[in-house]
Design a protein around this nucleic acid. Structure first.
Length: 471
RNA sequence: GGCGCCGUCGCCAAGUGGUAAGGCAGAGGUCUGCAAAACCUCCAUCUCCGGUUCAAAUCCGGACGGCGCCUCCA
């Protein structure tokens, strides 16, 4: 059974969906005002692995929502500066995000709501009115605030207490007049020139936290929903405030399990624009790396540990994937008909180890070890001519199964499907080279191989003939 | 000031009470026309100091080092 670390309880707990076999999960998505960076994508790749584990390892169905925050200070400013409407402006970045997500092999969630969609705005308005009716909210100068003192459990997720929040920590000094500095805004009064909505709230726009509460409950049903996720930085105040709003409005638990992904660092430093180390997928590619390598790198350490992105790490990831991909294609070349019985138990062990690792709070590094164990074992068996085609098929099925969760082999194969040299030309040259080798003209043969290497194609001579692959 | 995390081979990284997975890199070897790939062999006692235990990388205490949150942020 899957066990997940729950931020709410600070413990690893067995996880099962509340209703039947459907896991209802919500992830806080990007604010769409710029191209997302690799740190953002660590979160989304880890969510993807969680999603895939739930589906393909645990056998659950998944109903996942990941939102686009398409109205806030940054998006409004960006739209203004680019001279386009908020909708057009955010459309651009949503498109970019989908493009990058696809390059990283992230499965599309069932729901990708936008805050400014009518039905979501209405849901937010309804939630505010409910909070007001229950005495959790108050209006001041056209804005509406959540009154923290009305909710005794406030602070449970982040484990913050009032007394500790003093010296050294910045105290929220707001330009608005709130009853308590910690009260947060549910609805911001509109300013001249800014887009605004009125959903029983007066003209304005939603506060930072409101959209997630409203959309999660609208799209996933409940409460409680099964899993709520995001980057660690969202624990406070975002998620704490989401809990306050949702539980204030519904009177019951908002989310059963809180799943948080640690931050990515770059060359041991926090990413920041001033350091110039905020990389996007496009920049990774421009440096000659495949997105699959980034995905692998993100999977190679545990999601609750800080991960240090380095270019050496990317090089190592490229090599590691290559080993698995080479193995996977080698399996297709096995033609022996006699079974030897050596491989099936190896496959069974690997499948078991893979599952056990993922079930243990998504231990992807451990799962990868299981994959490599199988690679080594079966490679050795093939070298010893002790594998039948059917047994190779079993191993291939296992690798394909593993990759439904890892999503890294298929990604690499897709990336390498378009070689820099036309396939017919590669094959023609391989033919010429074979002829040269047959007449023992190794100089000519080596010349062809060298030429292809320079054009990005590697040749490997095996018992069955010559194989090519992208460098 | 409060809360919390981390320190395992050159690099990355599992393991969290029973005697150190895996990947990358490296050395030697097998195979090969040569390469490549693959395989085999070699390559750490877990930051340090105490303690608990038959047994600790794993638990407790302390030291040193690194980091996060308490403020917009994945």
């Amino acid at each position: 059974m899957l066990r997940l670390y729950n931020t709410l309880t600070h413990k690893e707990e067995p996880f099962a969906p509340l209703h039947g076999d459907v896991v209802r999960m919500y992830g806080c998505g990007p604010t769409v005002y710029a191209r997302a960076h690799i740190g953002n994508f660590r979160t989304y790749v880890c969510l993807d692995v969680l999603r895939r584990t739930l589906k393909y390892v645990c056998g659950h169905q998944v109903r996942q929502a990941v939102n686009y925050t398409d109205v806030d200070d940054k998006t409004i400013k960006g739209a203004l500066e680019s001279g386009t409407s908020l909708r057009e402006y955010t459309d651009t970045w949503i498109h970019a995000f989908r493009e990058d997500s696809a390059r990283l092999g992230i499965e599309a969630p069932e729901e990708t709501p936008r805050a400014t969609d009518d039905e979501n705005m209405r849901a937010m308005g309804d939630m505010i009115l409910t909070l007001e009716a229950k005495g959790h909210a108050y209006r001041r100068d056209g804005s509406i605030y959540f009154k923290i003192s009305t909710l005794p459990q406030y602070g449970q997720l982040a484990r913050l207490d009032r007394d500790g929040m003093k010296d050294g920590a910045a105290v929220d000094v707001d330009e608005y007049s709130k009853d308590d500095p910690r009260d947060f805004v549910l609805w911001k009064a509109s300013k001249p020139g800014e887009p605004s909505w009125d959903v029983g709230t007066g003209a304005g726009r939603p506060g930072w936290h409101l959209e997630c509460s409203a959309m999660a409950l609208r799209l996933l049903g409940g409460p409680p929903i099964d899993i709520h996720a995001g980057g660690v930085d969202l624990v406070f105040p975002h998620h704490e405030n989401e809990i306050a709003q949702s539980e204030g409005a519904t009177g019951t638990t908002f989310a059963r399990c809180w799943f948080h992904i640690e931050h990515l660092f770059v060359e041991s430093e926090k990413m920041s624009k001033s350091l110039g180390n905020v990389y996007t997928i496009a920049e990774i590619v421009a440096r000659g790396h495949r997105p699959s390598a980034l995905r692998y790198l993100l999977l190679s350490s545990h999601y609750r540990k800080q991960l240090n992105f380095t270019w050496t790490g990317m090089d190592q990831a490229e090599e590691a994937i290559r080993r698995i991909v080479d193995f996977r294609s080698r399996l297709d070349t096995v033609t022996d008909s006699a079974a030897h019985g050596r491989v099936p138990p190896q496959v069974a062990d690997a499948r078991q180890a893979f599952k056990t690792a993922l079930e243990h709070d998504l231990n992807t590094a451990g799962a990868l070890a299981a994959v490599f164990d199988l690679v080594r074992d079966v490679n050795a068996a093939i070298d010893a001519h002790e594998v039948s085609a059917a047994e190779a098929r079993e191993a291939a099925d296992a690798i394909d199964h593993f990759d439904r969760v890892l999503g890294v082999v298929s990604l690499r194969q897709a990336e390498d499907a378009e070689p820099p040299v036309p396939v017919e030309e590669i094959e023609r040259l391989i033919g010429e080279r074979r002829a040269a080798r047959e007449r023992r003209d190794f100089a000519a043969a080596d010349r062809i191989r060298k030429e292809l290497v320079e054009r990005g194609i590697l040749l490997e001579d095996n018992a069955g003939g010559t194989r090519w692959k992208k460098k």
